[in-house]
Design a protein around this nucleic acid. Structure first.
Lengths: 345, 345
DNA sequence: AGTTAGCACTCATCTCATGAGAGTGCTAAC
DNA sequence: GTTAGCACTCTCATGAGATGAGTGCTAACT
């Protein structure tokens, strides 16, 4: 069976109406609402075909039809109006992302809020994987006796501070000497790299200052490890917007979904991808069963060609794909541009 | 009418049973479950009295009785077994709070998780109000051209870093000179104080280095302001535990509550108190209408006599007060002890 | 006087039948 | 190939019992 023009128009009508109303739609209603020039009976025949093609389905015998996952997929790939953003949304995104790009965390949380507001869906951002960003510089500052503040600057501009234990007798100033060597050796390498291959090299260079070095390494180790365990941070925005979706009127479903949203691990799996450009994952295309009723629109944040974060929108399978795609696309482009225009120190 | 011994025992039975079962309890059931040595009819008479006293109420005519807010209050004040914690809970709390006290944020998030796990309720922690903590030291480190990393250490040990804009020509090293003056002047004062009264003093001392000073002040201003806007951070733990409570089986109620939980402002109002020791706020005693069906057990974190945070547990009015109170009490004591034992640098 | 048994009454909840409404599929006519 | 007509199916809302838990009252009992 072929998808002729009329079938396409009918499928389009079904998807669009269902996206808007969340109610199964019948032949009669299609004929009335959409001006297709044919009678309900004809539409019925076509719908029967569409069902056979697996593009639509009936919740139960005497209800209307709703799109299947495959139907949404066909719609997104072939039928949808090209995603296009209203000017006022564009302005909003520009404005919100404009301020203080150097404080990445804030940009991310702001963006996350913004996305959920614009779409009335849930936004998920997997933030810069701090462990993977090249290391740039470290400093030590005095803190309390036996402790020092270690400030780590990464190439993407992220600044982190950690309190590290140092021997009672060691001064922060001495540590800074060690730090200088580390800075020289480590510049441009991720903490991950350092652990994997550079430790020995550094070790031999500093062997004269064995004592300090031991301290410094002992101190770096947990930080490197910590960053490895928990590289990616997940930012959720508007998780409760899900509650407004009619498909989640059921308390148990809501519970399951919200619980899944609370688990960072699940979300990381859901978002992880190396794909370039917009990715649309519809319903059952998601591997994780908690999200089989959801669709995810996502795109990666890149810096120097490396994926270091993902921006996504999570909504019910029945979502306004055109709008969501436009918003995610525009936002990630914007963020990527901003990131490209500023290099680390 | 007086609260004689038998009335007390009956009220106690009602509250305890309702806490456990969430079902209204009738005279017959009380007689069966609790060995009071009287018949259901007698209990009925007593219940009638208790209702007149406003301590219990009927959801509808032919249902059993449930405690009123006043009933819970009476129970908490006079009838409850004294809050007492199991040894294994104690050990858990000790262990979880023990590690790395200097990274306050982590302790707070850990504690928040812990509390919600132990109680199966929602935990709320209002963290150290960074703006109010006395200022201890500041440092400047080089960043990119025109920008510097400003590291602020507060007396409670919190370390924050900010990226600040500096004039193109200004070196971080020069700034450090200004910082030294500021350090001398500001030590022991909150950022709030500084803005209020010390700015002029500093200004006159540094008038020779007018140019740098202007930069430094311009840079401090937004940071001070920012901290003032958002002094207290709210940490929520186990917000979804609410979903398991039978009183929130209604989707609309859940929605309202979760939304209220998302709004930091509401929670701050809910928690704000100057009271010493444990505070128990039952149902309608909460001013905010979203939380009229909830009770809050809270206690303040103090440092040097100053309240700088609040730890609380939020649950349905029908909650296990004894357990929740024991846990909050023990946890805050523990945290306060830890905080007292370490001074800032 | 306090306690208890008995009984009528109330009210929420569950179940079941009924009917309306929406939608389909099929057939026959156009 | 398209359409009108019609029987059929299934959901959902509605309302009528039936059920059961619990109360309040009265009268008898200790």
């Amino acid at each position: 069976m072929q998808m002729d023009e009329r079938k396409k128009r009918i499928l389009r009508a079904i998807v669009q109406d269902y996206i808007a109303s969340a109610e199964p739609i019948g032949s009669r209603t299609i004929a009335r609402k959409f001006d297709l020039g044919v009678s309900p009976a004809t539409i019925r025949n076509e719908m029967s075909d569409l069902e056979e093609l697996g593009l639509i389905e009936q919740p139960h015998t005497s209800a209307g039809r709703i799109p299947s996952d495959a139907g949404y997929r066909y719609y997104v790939d072939f039928l949808m109006d090209p995603p296009c953003l209203g000017d006022q949304d564009k302005v909003l995104i520009e404005r919100e992302t404009a301020r203080r790009i150097h404080e990445i965390q804030e940009v991310v949380t702001q963006t996350s809020k913004l996305l959920s507001q614009l779409t009335s869906l849930t936004s998920v951002i997997m933030s810069p994987q701090s462990g993977k960003s090249p290391f740039s510089k470290m400093y030590f500052l005095p803190y309390q006796a036996g402790q020092a503040i270690m400030v780590v600057v990464k190439e993407n501009g992220v600044v982190e501070n950690h309190i590290v234990e140092i021997g009672e007798g060691v001064e922060a100033e001495e540590l800074q000497k060690v730090a200088d060597v580390l800075n020289r050796k480590m510049q441009g390498h991720s903490l991950h790299d350092v652990r994997k291959s550079l430790l020995h090299e550094i070790y031999s260079e500093l062997s004269r200052q064995r004592h300090l070095l031991d301290n410094a390494l002992a101190m770096l180790e947990p930080i490197i490890n910590e960053d490895d365990d928990d590289q990616e941070h997940i930012y959720l925005g508007g998780a409760l917007n899900m509650l407004n979706q009619p498909e989640f009127r059921d308390l148990d479903k809501v519970k399951g979904l919200l619980r899944a949203l609370e688990e960072d691990g699940r979300l990381k799996k859901l978002l992880s991808t190396q794909q370039h450009g917009l990715r649309v994952s519809i319903g059952g295309e998601n591997k994780l069963e908690e999200f089989q009723d959801c669709s995810v629109i996502s795109a990666s944040l890149r810096y120097d060609g490396e994926v270091f974060g993902v921006v996504g929108i999570l909504g019910p399978t029945r979502m306004d794909y055109a709008k969501a795609m436009a918003i995610v696309d525009y936002t990630t482009r914007r963020l990527n541009r901003l990131l490209r225009n500023r290099r680390g120190p």
